[in-house]
Design a binder for these strands. Structure first.
Lengths: 347, 347
DNA sequence: TTGTATGCGTTATCAT
DNA sequence: ATGATAACGCATACAA
């Protein structure tokens, strides 16, 4: 038999029992005082005082594991994004954290680097921990896989992007096909470009095909033939932009404008152009996507199709909290957050 | 009385009892099979099969809250940083996550924005959750406050920076006073500058005074008088750099070189200089601190005193895991990670 | 080799 | 108004 004498606490952990002992009440009473007794209105303000004082003196903290076991609530929210080093996600993560924190939720973060493997691993973690809510940017997860998580844990889920569809998963997204179309259309109709490059991402990434379609639509509408040499695909990094622009500018007839699928690509592309002695936008115009803070740190300032991550994050957090708190229990909601073209100096 | 019939599970949650039932063994046996029975070597490979199959078919996931309550281990690691949008922390956070993940630890993140309030709040969260380990970048927390967390929860803690000292908290840090001295010394001795500006942070931030001292030491050693107009203080943002540089360049005798306490400040400073028609480094040289990825995205490429976040994160994660796993139980360890000057084009 | 029983710290349902 | 007491799901000492 171990040393299971009641009053003995070998480590420095203070439990409700200790508080109860010190306050001269039962442990159940302590619980009621601390939780504000939802049922009856009755807590003798005398014992209340004594309990609070004992809590104070002992420096009691509730044990969340025990509470979770009892209540099935973790007060934990899990966020799954591709890559914390992509500035686009910073304000998203920060905004979410700031919003849920006032309701005492802690935040877990997982990066997937767009790997299916890691997205699955995230689901497993969510199930083990029975997280209260999930905000994710799924790229490869299927509707079935997400459905499994919901069915098994009852977790509320909201997602950024229109990549999946599930009756109980609210979506916040930008119409990036339309936005791409508008950006390219502007390059043609407003800026008079005819030779327009496109640096995108492969079809295996959800945003890939949509943005490509937007590009193709704008060109086709203007009667410009699609030139395979003007369409390249990589990942969401500045390196992709750098190399792609190098290739473009080595062409016999280089594009006079380049639409980049995100700002990091655009920043890399501008760097490449400058390193090859070209002026932006005179020799080659560059337009990005996202409007990350770095857009105004580089010269020329980046013209870009802005997304509004703070607004998106606000919608995500709010929708999630509504579901967690049971204020909304209906079917899938879709929140579209429009993109807006921000004219600066690179195009 | 609620419906507490044993076999009934109203929601989709699968417990060990269900697995045991299906496998025709006791719940304790399931636990032993799943955990590899540390004590004896004995698990009948027959029952083992049956258990594993039941686990598979039912899609059982262990309930971490219950396990935590029993074992006092959360498999959670908490990271406290100032601001997730500071690129310096990206590789730190990512590296830590990647390392601890292979040992099945999840990661919680909190941003403090250098606010004392938020640092305290973080401590409270750590205590409630009884996190297994903590990696933090404390700015305002006192040794006593950290000691309390350790005493009460037994949590292992490692910290980035030499801002605190606790016998059980391992430290990973750069000697930034020395690094600042070296950077400024290089501007004087190697580059021949005499008028050197310094954009720092207030003394209330731990790195503030140290870096200032490094600057002062280099100047004093070279027999250059300290000029209060050349020493300004703000926060760690590009805006601070922008405004400070504007002020410098409006002086009757502007500095010919400016040492910035981090790269974001430096990037802002360069932008201001360029916007005022000055050339960098010809008219004014700029040197930063950290070596964030953006350093090579801007023109001119930023000359900077590089820290090595990946190396630091590796040390932090390794030291923490050693403490969590009890492989190291001794007193405070100090890991200094040297800074290195990276010459590029801005100075 | 496996089953039984107990307790981890809470919350919530009984009584009193 | 408050004190007992029973789970929550799991790990483990002990018995068999």
């Amino acid at each position: 038999m171990k040393a299971h004498k009641k009053g003995v606490k070998p480590n420095g952990v203070v439990t409700m029992r200790d508080v109860a002992l010190k306050a001269g009440v039962s442990q159940g009473t302590v619980s009621r005082v601390l939780n504000g007794t939802p049922t009856s209105i009755s807590i003798s303000s005398d014992t209340q005082q004594r309990v609070m004082q004992a809590v104070e003196e002992l420096g009691y903290y509730p044990n969340l594991a025990a509470r979770t076991l009892r209540t099935q609530r973790t007060h934990l929210i899990a966020i799954m994004i591709a890559d914390i080093s992509n500035p686009f996600y910073h304000s998203i993560v920060r905004t979410i954290q700031d919003i849920v924190r006032v309701k005492d939720y802690d935040v877990m973060i997982a990066n997937t680097d767009h790997h299916y493997e890691d997205e699955k691993r995230f689901c497993a973690a969510v199930m083990r921990r029975a997280v209260d809510g999930v905000i994710m940017v799924p790229f490869h997860l299927s509707t079935e896989e997400i459905d499994q998580v919901i069915k098994r844990t009852g977790t509320s889920i909201v997602a950024l992007g229109k990549h999946i569809t599930h009756p109980e998963v609210d979506l916040v997204y930008a119409d990036d096909q339309l936005a791409t179309y508008q950006g390219v259309h502007w390059l043609i109709a407003d800026q008079g470009h005819q030779h327009i490059g496109f640096i995108g991402v492969p079809d295996s990434f959800p945003p890939g095909p949509r943005r490509l379609h937007g590009y193709e639509a704008a060109l086709t509408e203007a009667g410009i033939a699609l030139n395979p040499e003007y369409m390249v695909f990589g990942d969401f990094t500045a390196e992709t932009g750098y190399q792609s622009m190098q290739n473009f500018l080595s062409l016999p007839t280089p594009p006079t404008a380049v639409f980049c699928c995100n700002d990091r690509i655009a920043i890399g592309a501008i760097a490449a152009a400058q390193d090859m002695g070209r002026r932006v936008p005179t020799d080659v115009a560059v337009i990005g996507f996202d409007n990350i803070p770095e857009a105004t740190l580089i010269r020329p300032h980046l013209t870009t199709m802005a997304q509004h991550p703070v607004e998106m994050a606000r919608q995500l957090a709010q929708a999630l909290l509504e579901r967690i708190e049971g204020k909304y229990t209906g079917t899938q909601r879709m929140f579209e957050v429009p993109c807006t073209l921000i004219r600066r100096d690179s195009a």
